[in-house]
Nucleic acid binder design. Structure first.
Lengths: 221, 221
DNA sequence: TTGTCAACAAATATCGATTTTTTTGGAGGC
DNA sequence: GCCTCCAAAAAAATCGATATTTGTTGACAA
């Protein structure tokens, strides 16, 4: 395979394409935690050579989605309650910092951005389309996107994905959207638009804690 | 080169060896910020093939020491005042969390560990040996090593390295150790041993702020 | 002079094959 | 029966070569 088209039809390198595919498979649980990731096997799955696969796995290592064992290959990162709770803790702490910085730098462009992302998310939720998860992440990242702290935003994005992975792994439990997530999102958005940093972060963190409490109960380890 | 020996004489893969070498070169400033990192050129420098070099560069990407430009290769990560200040801010915030957690979990083993690391650091400083930087990092990481929050510790380690890079890049300024760093370290250690989380974090953050203030003045951008 | 475009040069990305290392599965000794 | 050691198989790591992309130069036309 010389070229590859990603989900949006744009051309990407074999490495980047493999990265995106594997990432999605790990986040969705299709590649379960701890699973050995053999190059040869993935090579077949992805229709590509060993080099792009190795490089994609290397990149996933930095996202903490893949573990590399020296000279012994790669495996999907293991999961556990302690890990889940650390992620929740860090998310609350880091996103609080990021959201407050974002609000401090608030401007019209950012406001429009978060309003739009919120709209797209609501629409996707109502339609029940498959890309709801993407719009949900977009909304949350948009909230932080005005912080002018790119490293922090990167960490938040990483942790968001790790959290989503746990949600997907626990997907069989009782329906999770029973809580009125829509209201919670609306509250965060309104507080952000009011430039009320305190209220916005309280809503945001509460949003995470509630989700965390729900998911935490489902994880064995 | 089939085998490679790292600094401690242990056998490592070509990839890992290349990773360590390149990392050191970027942190020390030998490979200056923004510099194009051509595979062929590094291949010669490291006496190895293209694959290990590429993989090492991929790994360095996750440490934010190397930037990858799609289809256009790699370059040493650029630097700037905004980046420096973000790193300082995040370090203060994350290390505060980590140190407090470490102290909360304090036990005899941890105490021994930090006392030992501190001793090694003092010894290396007095002797003026080249490995002072390593012992310094070891001491700071040992302080956080009892947090039971591995992801947080990983972030702290990353940010520590990024900060060291700035220190090395500004190395030509007036002697930086004029401040009594020894006292500052002693204060942090003593407070940690007293299990006084508040006092320890105040000393620690003050330590970073002072260093940051000094270094910040040296960075142009 | 300036802008465009083709041919060339350089560098990246990828492939297929080879070399090393780890793992597996017994055979033989205790 | 259980451990140790050795060969065979599997997998990972690495290499050398090829294909693809990007960057550059200079001729030619507007």
């Amino acid at each position: 395979m010389k070229h590859m088209k990603d989900v949006y039809g744009k051309e990407t390198s074999a490495t980047h394409g493999s990265y995106l595919t594997l990432r999605k498979m790990i986040l969705s649980g299709e590649l379960p935690p701890g699973q050995k990731l053999k190059i040869e096997q993935l090579r077949g799955l992805l229709n590509t050579g060993a080099s792009p696969v190795r490089e994609a796995l290397s990149l996933l290592t930095s996202d903490m989605l893949v573990e590399r064992i020296d000279q012994r290959g790669f495996r999907a990162a293991p999961v556990g309650k302690a890990n889940f709770e650390e992620i929740l803790l860090l998310r609350c702490s880091l996103e609080e910092t990021a959201l407050q910085a974002s609000i401090t730098n608030a401007d019209a462009l950012w406001e429009e951005r978060i309003v739009l992302c919120h709209h797209h998310m609501k629409k996707a939720m109502k339609a029940g389309t498959a890309n709801f998860e993407d719009t949900h992440k977009n909304f949350h990242m948009a909230l932080l996107s005005n912080s002018k702290l790119p490293v922090l935003e990167r960490y938040c994005s990483q942790l968001y994905d790790l959290n989503i992975r746990y949600r997907n792994l626990a997907a069989d439990g009782p329906r999770y959207q029973e809580r009125s997530i829509q209201t919670e999102h609306q509250n965060i958005l309104d507080a952000a638009l009011d430039r009320d940093a305190i209220r916005a972060t309280v809503f945001l963190i509460d949003h995470y804690r509630k989700t965390g409490e729900y998911l935490g109960r489902q994880i064995k380890n």
